[in-house]
Every structure is written in C-alpha cells, then in structure tokens.
Design a binder for these strands. Structure first.
Lengths: 370, 370
DNA sequence: TGTATACATGAATCTCAGC
DNA sequence: GGCTGAGATTCATGTATAC
C-alpha cells in the first residue's frame, strides 16, 4: 500500500484513512477532481420519522417542525443534493459513482443525481438470495435493493472492465441484476454484546463486483457513509486506495480494526481479463512491409469476395480501393467491417485469417519488451 | 361482462372501452374516486442519438417514436406530475397504482409519486429472462425494468391477494423480483406489414400477476397509456372491468380487435403467468466474489497441475490464462475439460473439489426459490 | 415428417485515438 | 473541440429453411 497522501496541487489526499465527522464537510475539505470512484450507501430512515438531519447538521424534530410527508421529503432532498454536489466536486472528470438504496429513498436519489448533472449508466438490482420474509403478508417480500451507477457527466470515459465482469459471469455478459446473499455468518461484524455492529452491513461480494468492474488497481475509492468499512476492506484486498468518512465513532473503530486485519491479494491475482481494445494497434501495412503478405496477393472473405493487396497496405477490389475495413464494408454493403477478421489468405492449401498475422506481430512486440 | 357504464353520482364510467385523446383530459372527464386500480406504462423519455448496430451489422429497431420525445427533465417532470395528479383523483380511497419504467424515467416518476401523496408499497423488478444484450460491451445488459406499486395514500386499505400470489409462486411468498420473458412470439402483435404493432408491448404474464395480486373480480382497472391493450386483454380474461386511454388511432384499433378476441379465463394466459424460474447456474466467479475462494489461492488437479485464482474468476497457470475449463483443457492437452470436477483446493489439510462449493451455493438457491 | 442449421430481433441514453 | 477512420462488439428465443 502506498503512503498515506497523494499530492494534488497544494492539497493532500488522506489515503487509506477514515475521516471523522459530517460527510459533506469532510468532502469539501478534500481537493477537487481527485477521486476515481465513489461508493455511497446513504441513510434512508425517512419513514421511521426521526434521526434525520438537515444539511447544516441540525437535527429535525418531528413535532416542532410540524413534520409531514412533504417537509420530510424536502429535507431529505436537500440533504441528498448537498452530499451529491460535494461528491461530484471530488470526482475526476472520468470518475463515477455508485449509490445503493431502497424504494424509500432511491427515487429521490436518482432524480437528484440526474438534476446535478451526473449521467446514469445503469441501474443495477441486487437480488438477495436470502431476504427477510414479509411476516405480515401484506406486501411482497422485499427481496432486492437498487444501485445506480453514474458517470460524472454525459460523455465521460468511465472505467468499465467488461471482460473481467464477463469472466466473473462464466463467459456471459454481466447483466443488471446481481444475485448475491445478504451479509451474515462469519462476515457479519458483531459488537461486544454479540449484536450486529451495524444494521445495514453490505456483503463484500457486492463491493468486489463493483470495484473489479469499475476501477483499476491503484485507483482511489471514496465512501462518504463508511459504516463498518466494507468498501475499505474490499478496496484494500483488491489493491485500490480508499478513503472513508464516518460520523459515528463506534463504526469507525470497528471498521479500522476490520481493515487492519485484511490482506491484499497477490499482484498476479489482481490482473484481470482485458479487452482487445487494450491491445496495441498494428497497421495492416506492416504485414506487407515485413513480407508476411506479398503485394498482389489475393485475399478472400467467408462470403466469397475477393481483393488484392497493394504495396501501400491498401486493398483493391472490383470497383473499390481503400483500407481492409473500408473495402470489406463496401463489398458487404455494411455500415462497418472489421477487416482483420473478415479477410483471409492461402498458405499451404489452407485458408488463414489475417488476424493470425497480427497476433504474430503482437507476440514479437511483447518479446522485445522483456 | 357487465353493462358499459357504472353510475357514480351523476357521472357514468365508460367501462370496457377505449377512450381516444390525451390521457390527462380523458381522466379529468371521468368521475373522481371511481377506479380500483391504475396500471400505467408512460413514455420512458429515452434519449437515443445515432443508430445502433449489432455485431453482425444488423440495425436495432429503436424506440424513436414522437410520443417518447421530451425536450428536458423539467418538461418530463411536469408531464409526470400532471398525469399522476389526474390519476390520483380517479382512484377510490383504497385504490392503488402500478407504474413501470426504466432508469431513464423511473426515478423521476417515483419521486413525483411520493410528492403527490401516493404511498409506495413496493418496488418490483421485472427480471427479463431474454433481454437484448449490450452490443458494444460498454455497460451492463439492461436486463430489468422497475415497477412501483403505491396506494392512494398512507394507511389506505389496498388490495393484496397474498394467498393467490403465493399459489402462483409454487407455495412460496411472492418476492419483489419477478422473472418473466419479454413479449415476443405469438403474443407479440404485428401490423399488416408483419412489423411489430407497438414498440413496447408488455407481456400478459406481467399484467396477470399484477391483476391477480392487487384487484378482485369486478374491480375497475384503468390504463392511461393503453397502447395495444395488454391491460384490457388480461383484465377481461380475469373478469375485471377496464378502461383504456390511448392517443394513437392505430394502437386503439389493434387493441380493440385484440380484446374482442379474448375470452374470459383464457387458459393460455394462465400458462404464461407461471413461467419457469431462472436456472441455478453458478458462475465460478461467484465463489471468488463470495469469499469461498481467495484470489491468489492455488488450485490443483488430480494429475498434479497447478493454477492460481484471479480476482475476476479466471485462472492463471504457467503459460495460460482463462476460465477453469479452458485452463484445465490446455494443461491436459484435451479439447475440453469440466473445470468443476477437475480443480481442487486445500482446506484443513484436505483436498476438496471446487464442485463442493458450487453445490453449497446451489443448495442455498434451491432452498429459497422452490 | 423430423432434425439440424440459419436467420431475425428485443424500451438502448452502446467507441475512441489521433490529428 | 470537431472530424476521420480503425476496428471492436451479442444472448435468448422464435421462426424459417434445408436436408
């Protein structure tokens, strides 16, 4: 793990520590555009009528304030807007946020996210495999919670480790509904009385998937409602830096102890499957320059189209010339075409994809860097 | 089916008919406190830009209809507020509403519901068994839509047929996540060209579950965005009265024809509603996420081969990385390999097959869903 | 007629480096 | 910031066609 601070202009980032106090004040004390990912599990005790605080941290009194539904929503909205604004200031331009909630608060959180300029990428449902049943039989078993994943703004280049998530899901694209058990058993932290240390401790599996999917090793992850520190624990295991903010001293103590006992995974284990987009580009012309394909040689497509290689690495067909992609797209009447997988050549009586040659070139590039 | 009107004071209720025109005006023309349930599938306000192509270059037929275009969130919010207000006036005191949407609009709808005085009872997730994938690999598969179920006000005595829903669910309490296929095949209505008659037709199984669960025979069900009339068709089958409102004449015609051909208690519809559950497929990655195996941990094979677990649920061996099956096959020089029975780990001095862990996960899933 | 293969399609905010 | 061009990217299901 790196040192405790990262310099960013004049300010320092208190990495891998738990900050005490109100999350809005704490976030405002940190340098802007310094965090890669925020995970937030904000309070949503709206309908319990009590223990709700205004943005200025004064407590709302249900009786004195003539509590009603409307005023309670207004107060909650103001609180939500304030912390989402502070969080957005902290995010790097290509950073992202995850917020988790239930039907009590998630609609207000989602609307505020949109109003504040975040760009929703997905809503993801955590489908609990072992939920608490609805004992009174008056409603459906509350068997899920909703998470919203959003980038700082529209058009941002957010991190999404598509291949790693696909690998986690046994080769099938990861869906927006995740089946995971609730946090219990040995993972559930207990206080000295043997009671649960925190009412809504999130399972580490949830954070594992979020952090593997939307951060890279070395990224900075901030959790403004740290609780017992699940975010910090999983971030440490996965080689990400983390910052927690928590108001309650009892939670901070439990979290600190918990994270101290966590080990980081081996560096090798943190390497995940990568996309082809991350591979170095190989110009087709290089295959010609290197003599892997001869100018004048004929390439064929699975659909039986034909083109000839020219000395400058372009192709020429019956009535078209251009790059391997352009000629392929034209011959197929398609909007685009990946020429690397489309075109084939003959060697020793066999038809071979030109992509095999690209892979050879790439393999040599790797060899040379060792 | 009863007569076409129900007297309610001086006004009459146009039962089992489709009203033409704007839904807000039409609702305002109906008597207040006269409807038992409202099901609404409002425009989602998708903001699609260019065309989208599948990897095979075919073009996706997008929802680009004029009725889904709104110039801003403010305009969409005003529209939402107006129709929810009109709808609430129509509801009997113990009536309820269901609204369906996606992340584009559902947060705004949910917040407006709360602001207008509705009381949210559950959010229910429709998990699509066969969603359209994310073709560019940039986000999670959009595999669900969200429905909000709300009573007219807090404390209302809404209808909830707990036992009927439990029976639909093979004797287990119905959860807040429903697995149902999207509407296609014979159920999907086509126009005279053979194209889909409506871009977003909902499956009858969804409405079946909603109406069985939250109405009684003889209740009045209103749908202000009637489309091709799924709500009316299922209401008729189930012996509920219905009122549809639809602005587009083409949709009204399709809906009228469809409902005319429906018989009460249609066997086929009941069949649809009890569609099969998700198979308990367990990706290897889930064992890692859930902490049953640790990234960096070594797995062994009966033949003495070795590989290490990575954070994304892939394995890495001496000169190979990939899924448990791929790495096993490569190390054995075999065309294929069942990684579940091939790989083993050590616990308490013993060598255990990873398949034991899969069986543990499966046992938990089966326990809760059957 | 039965089986195997090919094709079509679904509420979608779906690329990115380099100039 | 805008433009150009390389080149990466899909799962489940129903229907049509081929053999």
């Amino acid at each position: 793990m790196r040192t405790m601070t990262k310099k960013k202009g004049a300010s320092a980032l208190p990495l891998n520590t738990i900050l005490a106090g109100d999350c809005i004040e704490a976030m405002n004390s940190l340098p802007e555009a310094s965090v890669d990912l925020i995970f937030a599990d904000p309070p949503y005790n709206l309908q319990l009528k009590g223990d709700l605080h205004r943005p200025d941290n004064s407590r709302v009194d249900a009786v004195d304030d003539h509590w009603d539904q409307f005023s309670s929503f207004a107060v909650y909205d103001a609180f939500t807007k304030a912390w989402l604004k502070a969080a957005r200031r902290l995010l790097k331009p290509d950073g992202a946020i995850w917020v988790i909630g239930s039907y009590h608060n998630i609609f207000r959180v989602g609307a505020t996210l949109q109003d504040e300029g975040y760009w929703i990428l997905n809503d993801v449902v955590w489908r609990k495999s072992n939920p608490m049943p609805n004992f009174r039989g008056k409603r459906f078993t509350n068997a899920h919670e909703t998470m919203i994943w959003a980038s700082k703004s529209e058009g941002a280049k957010y991190t999404f480790n598509y291949e790693a998530l696909k690998a986690l899901n046994e080769g099938i694209q990861m869906r927006s509904d995740w089946v995971l058990p609730i946090c219990n058993g040995g993972e559930r932290l207990k206080d000295s009385n043997g009671d649960k240390a925190h009412p809504t401790q999130k399972p580490e599996g949830l954070l594992h998937r979020i952090l593997v999917g939307s951060t890279n090793p070395g990224d900075v992850v901030l959790d403004p409602f740290f609780g017992t520190g699940t975010t910090g624990a999983v971030a440490k295991m996965l080689g990400r830096d983390w910052i927690g903010i928590e108001r309650e001293e009892a939670y901070r103590e439990v979290a600190a102890r918990r994270i101290a006992s966590v080990r980081k995974y081996d560096r090798e284990a943190l390497q995940v499957s990568t996309s082809k987009r991350a591979e170095p580009r190989v110009p087709f012309g290089q295959l010609v320059e290197r003599g892997m394909l001869r100018p004048g040689e004929t390439l064929t497509s699975p659909s039986g189209k034909i083109a000839k290689v020219r000395a400058d690495g372009t192709l020429i067909g019956d009535d078209v010339k251009g790059s391997i992609h352009q000629v392929g797209a034209h011959l197929e009447g398609a909007p685009s075409c990946n020429g690397w997988t489309y075109w084939h050549f003959r060697r020793e009586g066999k038809t071979v994809s030109i992509d095999v040659l690209r892979q050879q070139v790439r393999a040599e590039m790797v060899e040379r860097t060792h």
